[in-house]
Nucleic acid binder design. Structure first.
Length: 265
DNA sequence: ATGGTGGATGTTCCA
């Protein structure tokens, strides 16, 4: 089973690119973030036309929004928290009915956190830290996890090799020590970093390049904001991963590229 | 040190 995650940055604007993603990665499941579309305006026919007849989505106007497209039957996992009590559409959990048995899939879009890395002066940064801490506590309380995959735009690049310049980004939201520690605590609540299983440091891995770079490939000022984690019992099943860097050069590209992990389930 | 771009929306917020 191949699971892809992509911050699509507007589903309605970029839905045509999902065919390119499917052709490039051949995923069985696609988790999307920043769909920016209310459920009633979600393009209903599109996923089945691409070969993904099973769909869950949780969207709102303008901001946030997550969705899961699947070739395999899905069941929504109910009663997930309203993180930080915001009513945001930042999490969607599904049971994927894979041939070898059900797999729990969590799709997250973590708050970006604004510009100033100061909890007291920047409410967005406080929201981000609270969100991550709450999520870590929720998974820790449900452990030990089995046959569980967590994906999404977690908006934190936790390792020095997850950013183009570790020292330069220590005060930049997404790579501050407090965020890196918070994300590590969340991961350690029950997961293995699947992408780093295949590409351990010192290899640099990026999944996002700012729109503000004139030539993203030449400057390569990237960060690894998009993640795939698996419960430890799935470690022996990990067979392959792929970062679809080519997607950053697609016409009208998202600033994030798709990330895929394959599991022999 | 600054500002650079893009999406949704509506004359600004968010990333």
């Amino acid at each position: 089973m191949r699971i892809a995650t992509w911050n699509i940055n507007s589903l309605r604007l970029r839905q045509g690119r999902l065919a390119d993603l499917a052709a490039a990665l051949d995923p069985d499941v696609i988790a999307l973030q920043e769909t920016k579309v209310p459920d009633e305006l979600f393009p209903a026919e599109m996923p089945a036309a691409l070969g993904y007849p099973h769909v869950l989505r949780r969207g709102m106007k303008s901001y946030n929004g997550v969705a899961i497209l699947s070739r395999l039957p899905l069941g929504e996992i109910p009663d997930t928290p309203d993180w930080v009590g915001r009513g945001d559409c930042r999490h969607l959990a599904a049971t994927v009915h894979a041939p070898g048995g059900p797999v729990a899939l969590h799709n997250f879009y973590v708050p970006a956190g604004g510009d100033l890395p100061d909890r007291a002066q920047n409410p967005k940064f406080a929201h981000k830290l609270d969100f991550v801490a709450e999520a870590a506590g929720w998974f820790a309380a449900r452990g030990p996890l089995a046959r569980t995959v967590l994906v999404g735009d977690l908006n934190i690049a936790p390792l020095p090799e997850d950013v183009w310049n570790h020292r330069a980004l220590l005060d930049v939201v997404s790579h501050t020590p407090v965020e890196c520690a918070a994300l590590e605590a969340w991961r350690a609540s029950g997961f293995l970093d699947a992408v780093r299983h295949f590409a351990p440091p010192p290899e640099r891995v990026f999944t996002w390049w700012s729109y503000r770079n004139r030539d993203w490939r030449a400057s390569d000022r990237g960060r690894r904001l998009d993640h795939i984690w698996v419960s430890p019992d799935l470690a022996p099943a990990l067979t392959r991963h792929q970062i679809l860097r080519d997607a950053r050069d697609w016409e009208k590209a998202s600033d994030h590229v798709p990330v895929m992990v394959e599991l022999a389930l």
